[in-house]
Amino acid sequence: MRALINLDANSISDAVQAAAQVRAEGRIAAFSGGGTDLLQQIKDGTDPADVIVNLRTVNEAREIEEGAGGISIGGLATLTRVMENAAVRARLPALAQAAESVGTPQIRNVATVAGNMTQRPWCWYYRNGFNCFKAGGEECFSVNGENGQHAIFGGGPSFIVHPSDIAPVLVAFEAIFQLAGPDGEREVPAAEFFVLPRVDPVNENVLDESELLARIVVPSPPENTVSSYYKVMDRAAWTHAEIGVATVIRRDGNAVTDARVVLSGVAPIPWRLRAVEEFLAGKPITAEVAREAGEISIEGAQPLAKNRHKLPMTSAAVERSVFGLAAG
């Protein structure tokens, strides 16, 4: 690995100030929560950071607490802590399932909630050093290239897919993200944290370079809310989602009163299926309703030459997810 400097941060405020200072000195800082992906990118040369702001020495923003306003999850909570937390398992089962589906125990033991949602795309062009939009270039090489794992929704000019499993769950639960920067804190709804390439072709979210995702607050789900995360992979374990379906449904008996269905792995941001949500409202969850929800889920999809398999895959995954939440 090339020579670099590790700076231990003592607090979130210390970390963002340090990052701003490093930038002011003309160097490139990168925050490291678990560092699982960052170190790989530095070794590969796809991340230019020469100063790592180490967050493992930060003792705050690690809590997972249930309070009056909902469940508060520190950005530095590890995925292992999230999947094992009793309140998360009881109140937000989709989040526990999504966290448990990430990578391997070795990754989940250090990888953080914030890092999982701000990890860079896994497009093979970007990861192999192509000067694409994500690397600051002017081209998306997948358009006329190997695009089997690329976006069927929301693509252009870049066609990456958002890789996080927990992000669509937090969008579905309508979480609030608290961002900390050198000039203070701000709050952003989860759905507005992620940005399409047509808005910003380089960055996947609204974070400034010296800002951190410090905390996530998930409002307590109303009574009779059920949820799940269903992940389809191209092998049985240890990879990203071909498609992941975060489904949060509020039921009255077996009738849907309110639904959120948000996808991972098919769009540059967690992709909300509003047409499916509207279709489900007021209907009982039957096999036929679930099948129709699956059909509706791919309306408006724009597949590339080599990713058409994601259409039937999306329909099937949405159908199974919805039917899986039918009352007992």
Partner: peptide
């Protein structure tokens, strides 16, 4: 040496981690 194969796994404070993926 890129956090994928697990040959470098050690226990850090009791939990398995990829030692190639930690500074």
């Amino acid at each position: 040496d890129r956090g994928e194969c697990g040959a470098c796994t050690v226990l850090m404070n009791g939990a398995p981690v990829y030692s190639c993926g930690q500074l």
